[in-house]
């Protein structure tokens, strides 16, 4: 689950990228104590890998939405979703195809920016449409919101300056809208 990275900025194998065998599950759950533990416990117990996980209250009172990026090399998606369905608190699971969904993630990072380097970091942030959110004598904290792939690139380039600390939120996603239809997500049904 943890995304390890080294300070030199080289992307490690744990960084997800477009070609990785991942899938996004959007899981609507009852917002009750322990629900996140049930979901993460299930993944741990059955040996499924999570790349990232984001959870927050959903549009409806008493519900939360958990966005999980799962590694399909660890188990077939069908088993993962069926086992998730068995959790009493899980109400609905939508499988989001990355090509038919909008994905966003937020990154904040503190990088070394002594003297003239500050301008370089500032330019970089500007190009990516990120923000400088705090500045110290030789450090600067930047933020960027966007598609996870864009964040990967930004992170790479920031790495050249030396990242002191970095935090990404993990992706959140919703089905992509088009002009004609309302719902593009596939609500997974139990098989018959």
């Amino acid at each position: 689950m943890a995304r390890t990275r080294d300070v030199s900025g080289a992307r490690t194998a744990n960084t997800y990228s477009a070609d990785m065998n991942h899938h996004i599950l959007s899981v609507l759950v009852q917002n009750r104590p322990g629900v996140l533990a049930r979901v993460s416990g299930l993944f741990a117990r059955r040996g499924y890998n999570i790349f990232s996980l984001a959870v927050a209250p959903a549009e409806e009172e008493g519900r939360s939405r958990i966005t999980i990026v799962v590694d399909l090399d660890s188990a077939p998606l069908e088993q993962i979703t069926k086992q998730l369905f068995k959790l009493i608190d899980v109400i609905k699971i939508s499988e989001l195809d990355p090509s038919r969904s909008v994905e966003r993630e937020l990154l904040i990072a503190t990088v070394k920016a002594a003297g003239p380097k500050l301008a370089d970091v500032s330019t970089l942030a500007e190009i990516f449409e990120g923000k400088i959110i705090a500045v110290a004598e030789d450090l600067v904290t930047v933020s960027l919101e966007g598609h996870p792939d864009k964040l990967d690139d930004f992170e790479d380039l920031l790495g050249r300056h030396g990242i002191v600390e970095l935090q990404r939120t993990g992706r959140v996603a919703l089905p992509k809208l088009d002009r004609s239809s309302r719902h593009r997500s596939t609500a997974l049904r139990q098989p018959h």
Binding site: K82, Q83, F85, K86, P191, H192
Partner: peptide, 15 residues
């Protein structure tokens, strides 16, 4: 439903 296809893929799954 999670038993369907867990070990052996069924030709006719009936939940």
């Amino acid at each position: 439903p999670a038993e369907q296809g867990k070990v052996r893929r069924p030709d006719v799954p009936i939940v």
